[in-house]
């Protein structure tokens, strides 16, 4: 495994097969793991995720400032460049809503026409436009909890646990 391959993988440029092989190689190659650490740290410094004043970051930024500017087309890898914690936290929001829906708080589907239920056929093929408010069918305190979980951010460490927590709450609610 070359450093070019390693860096390409970290930039999301490796194929699935290459990525799998690189991950396997990393497991048994301490030198590559150290290189990874450096790459990641360099990336953090470049994005400003590490504060200036950190010795290494200062060296990185100084090195950058002395590098010649290269004018070249920008390759967009938009979603991979988003902020830290995005993946887990976004997933958190998604699952929280799922749990919100799974609380057993709902009236049976189509039972109350007066609630303005949106009916759609082939939902995958049509815009999801007509909707009713969750508040209309979330009658008790658990709706606060679900709204909280759906809005949770910056939970990088226990992120997965965050949205599973809401599923767990469903069991509490269902027992009531």
């Amino acid at each position: 495994m070359t450093n070019e391959q390693l860096s390409g993988w970290m930039d999301g440029e490796a194929s699935a097969a290459e990525a799998e092989q690189i991950v396997k190689n990393l497991a048994g190659h301490g030198g590559s793991r150290e290189a990874c650490k450096l790459y990641w740290l360099v990336g953090d410094c470049l994005r400003g995720d590490f504060p200036r004043g950190n010795d290494l970051c200062d060296r990185v930024m100084t090195a950058l400032e002395t590098e010649p500017t290269v004018l070249a087309p920008i390759v967009h890898k938009a979603e991979q460049k988003r902020g830290r914690w995005m993946s887990l936290a976004a997933a958190v929001a998604g699952m929280a809503v799922a749990a919100w829906m799974g609380l057993g708080l709902w009236t049976p589907p189509f039972q109350d026409e007066a609630m303005g239920l949106a009916r759609q056929r082939g939902i995958q093929d049509q815009p999801l436009a007509a909707a009713v408010s969750p508040a209309e069918i979330l009658p008790d305190d658990r709706s606060y909890l679900m709204a909280h979980q759906a809005s949770a951010v910056g939970v990088p460490m226990a992120g997965v646990a965050q949205y599973i927590r809401t599923v767990n709450v469903e069991q509490v609610g269902g027992a009531r």
Binding site: D49, R82, G83, M86, A98, M101, P109, P134
Partner: peptide
């Protein structure tokens, strides 16, 4: 985000809050 509850034939649509506030996520 789309959340499916097939038992009740319900789907919930949402925007992950982080998508609206990308600059606030860095810790």
């Amino acid at each position: 985000v789309q959340c499916f509850l097939p038992q009740d034939r319900i789907v919930v649509t949402d925007k992950a809050v982080l998508g609206r506030q990308p600059g606030r996520l860095i810790t």
